[in-house]
Design a protein around this nucleic acid. Structure first.
Length: 595
DNA sequence: ATAGGGTTAG
């Protein structure tokens, strides 16, 4: 900047202070370069008698870089008033400003102007319009621009594909993708990411395999990141490791984002050790990597390790803890029953880091106190919150009421939670289970009827297990697997074995229409988790760890059974449920039955 | 001189 100012005064001495070519260079440097100074650029701009289109365009870009779309738009208006004619470099910026500022009507006016000035066949302008309509959720308009383009390039296709996917129209995205004549890495990634975001992990893997068969295939960091997320979603550790290896081999530069994705994959695929090793390997860590690692320890019930890492972050890291850091840290305390520490960090966050507690922090604190049986303190905290508690905070409280058998409070708050979140089956199941614990069967039936009347379906549980690098999915009572006879026989054998060391079936969830005891047991025995474990025992060598991923929480019976299976068959079983990990080994679980 | 793709929580 200093050098530039010298250069600038030289130009002025040469009498070129009104020369657009010379001043354009000065403005470009100030407005665009990372160590520039837009304020200075604006001063120079103001001193020019007749700035040209290039100079306007440059300032637009400067404003956009600093995320000042409103200023960009008003300068554009000023430009038109000054009768400076826009060119094809003008519109991409202005359209982007409309996109960021979410000004639909103005965006359409700019669209009309693009037409008027004759840029209906300019790819850059048209692509920016597609992008704008996508972000306005006007998919039909985006599609119309796309269809009207004389020449579509891969950017046009890619924007529209990810546009469909972001609005939830995955099938439309897929149709478009299949129509695309020449796919490039960005468009492959748009489609793979679309699958990952809509939990279609298997489809993501199929696409990836197809992509690898194309001649110019080369793994880039975006595809790598999307595929890592697919592995994370399925709990597919082997595949995740494979991608990680390929990242190393391909010499892809691992930035903060990619590092975080890798760490998250290891955490959520059950290998906290590899996650931590990877974390420690990266010399420069972003805040997201720290947060992710602390969150990983939280998920695995390693509260002390999370606290250690947090202290390290405070001492040695150049990044300071943020809002999410404390969500993860307090949740780590909650999952490990570290009540005192949780209280401490809740205070510490405000006193030392000047972060005021938000909804999520209250949610974690209510969870922490409630699980520990301190229902009164949890309630007190809810009442003291500066904002109204949302469903998640109250849901955490109801969960605590269930664990500690507090029917009165659980009923009162549980009903409120249902009304606040009427489409979430989990809310109904929770209250029904509270009634069931108190043997209030009529109330259980009442809840079941309410769910039926409202058409709320209990989400179907499934379990995934990875064997030999392939992921198999099981649903409760499912028989679609070719070896299902063998698997069911194995379940029988498995349960007989653990009965001999004290297993007693215990139903918890009672929202099924199951009356007969025998029926109940059958349903319990064929929970997806037990099928997956049986399959794992069949398909893996003795002593090999079983890794299972579930979409719901582990039920009490499966939890008990898993402990005993780990003992009887001398296997480590690692189960990821929707909120945490359970490491079953030698008959005990890492969660200490505290989940 | 300009555009499109990946990450972190409960």
């Amino acid at each position: 900047m200093e050098k530039l100012k010298q250069y600038h005064s030289q130009i002025i001495r040469l009498g070129l202070s009104g020369d657009n070519d010379a001043m354009g260079r000065v403005i470009k440097f100030c407005a665009i370069s990372t160590n520039g100074d837009l304020g200075y650029a604006l001063k120079v701009f103001g001193s020019l008698p007749q700035p040209d289109t290039f100079i306007y365009n440059t300032i637009f870009r400067g404003y956009l870089q600093l995320q000042l779309p409103k200023e960009c738009i008003s300068l554009y208006v000023q430009m038109l008033h000054a009768s400076v004619t826009p060119n094809k470099f003008t519109f991409p910026s202005v359209v982007k400003a409309c996109t960021f500022d979410n000004v639909v009507e103005l965006g359409q006016q700019v669209h009309a102007q693009i037409f008027k000035f004759g840029y209906q066949s300019d790819g850059f302008s048209q692509n920016s319009l597609i992008h704008m309509y996508v972000s306005f959720k006007s998919l039909e308009k985006a599609r119309r621009v796309f269809d009207m383009m004389p020449q579509r390039d891969d950017v046009s296709w890619t924007i529209l594909i990810s546009g469909y996917s972001q609005s939830g129209f995955i099938d439309d995205a897929r149709k478009l993708f299949d129509l695309m004549p020449e796919k490039n890495p960005a468009s492959w990634n748009a489609m793979i990411a679309a699958c990952v975001q809509s939990n279609r992990f298997h489809e993501a893997f199929l696409l990836f395999d197809q992509m690898r068969q194309t001649s110019q295939f080369k793994l880039d960091k975006f595809v790598a990141a999307s595929m890592l997320s697919a592995c994370t979603g399925l709990g597919a550790l082997k595949q995740g490791e494979w991608i990680h290896d390929n990242i190393k081999k391909s010499g892809i530069e691992v930035d903060h984002k990619l590092a975080t994705t890798i760490i998250d994959m290891y955490c959520k695929c059950g290998s906290i050790e590899k996650a931590f090793a990877t974390f420690n390997q990266f010399p420069t860590k972003g805040i997201s990597s720290w947060n992710c690692m602390i969150g990983g320890f939280a998920m695995h019930g390693k509260g002390e390790e999370a606290i250690e890492l947090f202290k390290r972050m405070e001492n040695e890291s150049k990044v300071s803890p943020d809002y999410i850091t404390f969500v993860n840290l307090i949740s780590a305390c909650a999952h490990s029953g570290l009540v005192q520490e949780g209280r401490h960090y809740f205070q510490h966050m405000v006193k030392v880091h000047n972060i005021s507690p938000g909804m999520e922090h209250y949610g974690c604190m209510v969870d922490l106190l409630g699980r520990a049986g301190l229902l009164n303190e949890a309630m007190k905290l809810i009442n003291e919150m500066p904002m109204d508690p949302d469903v998640s905070v109250m849901g955490a409280f109801v969960g605590a009421c269930k664990i500690h058998g507090n029917i009165e409070l659980g009923e009162k708050i549980g009903e409120k939670v249902i009304e606040l979140d009427p489409h979430n089956s989990g809310r109904y199941v929770l209250l029904a289970n509270i009634y069931a614990t108190a043997s209030k069967w009529e109330d259980v039936a009442k809840i079941r009827k309410l769910m039926n009347d409202r058409g709320v379906k209990k989400s179907r549980g499934f379990s995934l297990i990875e064997t030999d690098g392939a992921v198999t999915e099981f649903i409760a009572g499912g028989r679609s697997h070719p070896d299902s006879e063998e698997i069911y026989a194995k379940v029988k054998e498995m349960l007989a074995c653990i009965r001999s060391i004290g297993y007693v079936p215990e139903a918890e969830s009672v929202v099924h229409d199951i009356s007969e005891e025998e029926e109940m047991e059958k349903a319990l025995f064929y929970h997806s988790e037990k099928l997956a474990i049986a399959f794992g025992l069949l398909k893996t060598k003795a002593g090999e760890t079983l890794r299972i991923t579930k979409n719901l929480r582990v039920c009490k019976d499966c939890h008990e059974a898993s402990k005993l299976i780990s003992k009887f068959f001398d296997r480590e079983i690692i189960v990821r449920d929707r909120s945490r990990f359970h490491h079953f080994k030698h008959g005990v679980c890492s969660c200490n039955d505290y989940w």
